[in-house]
């Protein structure tokens, strides 16, 4: 029987990062495919409340490691690697967030394990299970086989629905790790404060590109009307017009909202890689040949400075 260990991610505030629940679904599916059992791990300064929150999700056990401070790769690598060995996990995975992308390959390095990043699904079952993952900005979906005993996986959240509680109460076990001195010191975290929903969790995302010339007022106003998040293309982030946290794409966030509005975005494959899984895509661009129209369900060839306010006013009327 295999053991699938899914790592929960805590936000700097100590709260559970929601992407963890997508990874829990990925872990459940993997446990089913491999005839194994699901375990969860919660690492941080105070893991107990989050472990409690996760008790109803059907894990065989929840392992907590306390006494850690703010996330830095080295101490978390030490703690997680020791835990993986102690529970004899065959698979260890977490969401492909910034922390997941930073931490997991380092843990894989310590335990000399192979790793598949941004796993989207599985093929086969039992010990022969293989992993589907994107390559070349999602132009190709590859199936990969990992041949080390321990297999490390990061999961693409948009491909696995958020887990719902299944009832039952997992056993919570405290694990004590020995944490050596780190060569890295945390200095600070400059948070992008926003009252809007999280980009990766929002039902609606309104994104602006270079076509906005840095004026995001109308993009934000439409997002706010629809209770949505604001996204951006890389060009806009590079120009320093919006925080990096807004970036959607191959090297930024992958989103799949119910409605994605792209305004003044040309639709480079690197951008499409982060949003083409959205349910409905609207593109507003003044160039009728822009590649974004190839993925848009509804394309409007127009000046965004005219179309966005008009769209917002009509939708506001509709809402009454």
């Amino acid at each position: 029987m295999s053991i699938v260990l899914i790592v929960a991610e805590l936000q700097p505030s100590g709260q559970l990062r929601k992407a963890t629940l997508n990874a829990v679904t990925a872990g459940r599916q993997l446990a089913e495919k491999t005839g194994g059992e699901l375990h969860l791990a919660v690492l941080g300064a105070n893991p107990a409340p989050v472990a409690e929150e996760l008790r109803g999700f059907g894990a065989r056990a929840i392992h907590t490691v306390g006494g850690l401070s703010q996330y830095v790769a080295e101490p978390y690598t030490a703690a997680l690697s020791q835990l993986v060995q102690s529970v004899k996990a065959d698979y260890v995975g977490m969401a492909a967030t910034a922390v997941g992308r930073d931490l997991l390959p380092r843990v894989a390095g310590r335990l000399r394990a192979a790793m598949a990043s941004e796993v989207m699904g599985y093929e086969g079952s039992g010990a022969d299970v293989q992993f589907q993952r994107p390559m070349w900005a999602g132009a190709v979906i590859a199936t990969v086989k990992l041949t080390t005993a321990l297999k490390v996986l990061s999961f693409r959240g948009t491909e696995f629905p958020m887990a719902e509680p299944t009832g039952g109460a997992s056993e919570v076990k405290a694990f004590t790790a020995s944490i050596p001195a780190s060569k890295t010191a945390f200095v600070d975290f400059k948070e992008v404060k926003s009252a809007r929903p999280n980009l990766t969790e929002a039902r609606v995302v309104v994104s602006g590109g270079r076509g906005t010339k840095g004026d995001f007022k109308e993009v934000e106003a439409l997002a706010d009307l629809l209770n949505g998040a604001v996204g951006a293309s890389r060009a806009v982030v590079d120009a320093g017009w919006v925080p990096n946290d807004y970036q959607v794409g191959q090297t930024g966030k992958v989103v799949a909202p119910t409605l994605y509005v792209a305004a003044g975005i040309s639709g480079a494959i690197q951008h499409l890689a982060g949003m083409k899984g959205s349910k409905t895509i609207v593109a507003i661009n003044k160039d009728g040949d822009a590649p974004i129209f190839q993925v848009a369900d509804y394309g409007l060839v127009a000046d965004l400075f005219k179309a966005l306010p008009e769209l917002r006013e009509s939708l506001a009327k509709l809402k009454g």
Partner: peptide, 12 residues
């Protein structure tokens, strides 16, 4: 560049 903002580290 991390989720939610910018992180600063000092690395030996």
């Amino acid at each position: 560049e991390v989720d939610g903002g910018l992180d600063t580290l000092d690395v030996q």
